[in-house]
Structure formats: C-alpha cells, structure tokens
Amino acid sequence: MRGLLLGVLTALVPEHWIGDLEEEAVEEGDWWLARHVMLAALYGVRMRLARTNFLESSAAAALLAGLPLVGALALRRLVLTLIPFRESAAYSWWAVAAFMILTAGLGLGLTNALGRRRVAVLLGTAVTLAIVLLLEAPIVLTVAAFAGGWAATIRRRGEMG
C-alpha cells in the first residue's frame, strides 16, 4: 500500500520529496501518508506547470480542460436520457447555462494553475474545441470555457503562491 502510494509520486515530484515522505512514513499512519502524498502530488503538478514550456503547458491545458468537459458532457447526455420532457427548450437552456458556469469555473482554475499563461490557455481551449467537435457536442460550451478562462486571465493580477 505504502509502496504504491509513493510509486504514484515518482512521475510527479522530485526524488528527494519521495525520500522525505518515505522517511517520515516509518512513524506515521497510512492515512497521514495518503493525505501527504495527495497534497505533494498537487504541489508537484503545480510546480511542473509553472516551470514547463509553452507546448507542455498547452498539452496540460488541453488535458485539464478537455477531460472534465468531455466527462461533464457525457453526464449531461446520461441525465437527458433519464429525465422526462427532455425536449423542453427551457430545460435545455438551463442545462447550457449550468455548463457555461461549470466551464467558466474550470477556465478560472485552469488559468490560475497555469500561472496566467494566456496563449497556453487559448491553445488548450482550441484542442478542447477539437475534442468537443469530434464528439458533436454544442460549441457554446467550448466558447464558454474559453471566455471563462480568458476573463479569469484578464482579471487575475497576483503572482502564483
């Protein structure tokens, strides 16, 4: 269990971080280790994003924006098959509005995570657009994702912590 937890980190954080966790894990419980491995992974990903170059950032942006968006769209399709009156125009607009908020929030988190890299977010969104179009999803969702990310980029002025 412990080996698996630490193994997850191998690709995400420098080796001395893992060594430190392994050293402390001797006197700590599994829950402590799981919590610290998760947090260390998040710090590691953020540090890598802050250091990576333009193309890597774009790929990360596509991954971060694309996968949750595609997942959300799949969920929406599932919900539409379960709810009666699914052809209702009002419901459809509410669904679109909800997903616009979701994708705008996603864009905000994404832009922060990438340290305000506007062009990277733009390219990432373009890749997301391609994914969404391939799945024949509504284009408005991707436009909302980009608009959210762009608005967050313009709004945010602070440095990464």
Binding site: H16, W17, D20, E24, H36, L39, A40, A41, Y43, M47
Partner: peptide
C-alpha cells in the same frame, strides 16, 4: 532538509505543513 524543516515548523507553530509546500517555498 524537507523532513527536519517540516518538523521544526510543526514543533514551534503547531502547523502540519505538507512537504510540497516546504519545497515550493524553498525553491
């Protein structure tokens, strides 16, 4: 180093900080 710094902060402030926070700050 990471562990001793984490423990020193925990002992003196009571804060259980993550190793990632320590190394991000050290960098």
């Amino acid at each position: 180093y990471g562990v001793s710094i984490r423990k020193e902060i925990a002992a003196r402030t009571g804060r259980d900080v993550n190793i990632g926070a320590v190394y991000t700050t050290l960098d």
